[in-house]
Each structure stands twice: as C-alpha cells, then as structure tokens.
Design a protein around this nucleic acid. Structure first.
Lengths: 146, 146
DNA sequence: GATACATGGTTGCGAACGCAACTAATTTGG
DNA sequence: CCAAATTAGTTGCGTTCGCAACCATGTATC
C-alpha cells in the first residue's frame, strides 16, 4: 500500500501559510522565514549563544548569523561577548523586543487560528499531538549527528 | 486560551524533512524545493499549461517558469505551443520522465515513511485526514483571489 | 608551552522563491 | 475592426536559506 503523501500536504500548507505570516510580520520590520522563530526563542530563553539557538530553531548556523544580524539591526536583539568563552555571543532581547512580545504573540496566535480555522477544537488537539510526536521522532540522533 | 503552535511545528518538520528529500532527489538531477511537485503533476496530468500547473502546485507563476525550464533542461519535460492559444505551452513528460516515474514515486514514498516512521498506522490515517481538511480549508476563495 | 584538534561564528557561493513590471497573444466593447 | 482590458508567460530584483570553506578562540596532548 502506498503511504499517504503527508509530506506533500505539509509542504503545500506551509507554503501557502508562510506568505500570510510574512505579510503580518513585515510591518514590524521582521523578515519572512525564520526571523520570528529566533526572536521568540531569545525572548523565551535570554542569554543563549548562537550555537545553542541554531539547534533550538533547526536552521543552519549561517542562517542564524544572518537572522541575528537583521534582528540586531532592527533593534530587537543585543549581543554581548561571553567572557567565559570569548568566541561566543550571548543573545538578549532589547526593551523594544520585550515590549513587542505581546504583539508578536498575537500575530502568531492569529496565524495559528487562521491555519486551523476549519478544524474543530478536538481536531486541533489531535493534530497538534500528532505533529508533536512526528517532530519528536524526527528530532533524533539518527538525523541529528552530534 | 492560547492556540497551539501548529504552524511552528509544521514549519520545523518541513524544514528538517526537506533537506532529506533534497538529498535523495539530487542524484537524479532534480533540484530541491518544488521541482518534483511539478514533475509529478505533469506525469499525472499531461498537457496542462503553466498557468493551470501553477494553481495545482501552489507556487508562483515565476517559479513555475523557472522550474519547468530546469525540468526541460534536465530532459524530463517537453513544451509545445498550444495551437488553440499561442500564448500558452502544453507540458508533457518525456520518455525519460515516464521511465523515471516509479523511481520518483519510490523516493517520495520513502520520504513519507521517514516522516511518519514514529507514528502508528492509525495515527498516520488521522494525520493525513486532518492535514487534508486543513488544506481544503486554506485552499479557498478567501485566500485565493480569482 | 607548542602543536593538534574542537568549537562558535562568519563569509562566499549558489539555489529557490515571491513580487512587480514587462511582453505577446487573445478577448471584449464600442 | 480597432482600442482597451485580460491572460500566459518571462525577466529583474530582493530575500531566505544551506553547504562548504574559513577565522578565531579554546582545549587537549605531548
């Protein structure tokens, strides 16, 4: 039996949805793609270095460098050299970022509501649980060489 | 109550997974991203024009132009001018593409199995149904101006 | 404490993609 | 039947991203 094309559906949905999200973040100087993921992670856990952050958001470390630079230029993130290890930077949200957090969260909540607008509450629960399980399965040593 | 971050999970999973798929398609001269979607659509429905194809795969028409050009250069697709409407091209798979179809399908099946490796059969059924419903909901006039 | 190795971060390069502006063929309205 | 509007496709431009090569700091081995 042929497996369902779960990958195709996810890629479709993601592609359509990302355009919506980009449009909503743009007025706040936050670029499309992963920038908001970085900002959310820094707000949630201030003081991480870029390497840690890269593994949290699952992008490439080069992408991290660039996204952080953009967030810094937009005034959302501060970088300070870690005195314990002078190679790495500790990342902190600025006052502006902290003030913006509720708005950011509202945009993301809105986005999620849009995505799941045609599902019942039970269906959303089930979908979230399944995606979480899927994610946990993928986020394993086999695919994540140390 | 805060909505689940279904969007974030989907984007994570998609990002991780796309790298896997890209690696498997690369040896066959098929670029990462949407190229395989176009090829599959053309194999499934030969003779479409690019405009129709764009709406099927949900990319931008500029992206369609470029992906089709690459598939043509790679020898998978033929374009012929539609004599009924000389602006449009009819798209057909080449012999090579037809011969390659089973292999392509095997790669995609494999990919889907990888994605859902940690789910039970019932969970995969449920996930597929939910994603399909989600997709159908998004693929509506409100977001798809005619 | 000099040499090798590991690790955090950056840069160069190329691929993929969307938007907007454009060309060329077709349809519509007067 | 001609001008205006529409439609299929292309091109220019800017953004995002991954990979690989690289630099600088830190750690380990001798």
């Amino acid at each position: 039996m042929r497996p369902y094309s779960v990958g195709k559906l996810m890629s479709f949905i993601n592609r359509i949805a990302q355009r919506e999200l980009a449009e909503r973040l743009k007025p706040h100087g936050i670029g499309s793609g992963g920038q908001h993921s970085y900002l959310k992670a820094i707000l949630a856990t201030p003081g991480m270095n870029q390497d840690k952050l890269t593994s949290v958001v699952k992008f490439d470390k080069a992408t991290t460098t660039r996204c952080i630079r953009q967030l810094e230029e937009a005034g959302y993130v501060k970088r300070t050299v870690d005195e314990q290890d002078r190679r790495s930077y500790r990342l902190y949200p600025t006052e502006i970022a902290i003030a913006f957090e509720p708005k950011l969260q509202a945009i993301l909540d809105d986005y999620n509501r849009l995505l799941t607008a045609h599902l019942t509450v039970e269906e959303i629960d089930a979908l979230h649980a399944l995606l979480q399980k899927m994610y946990d399965g993928l986020d394993e040593p086999s695919l994540n060489p140390t």
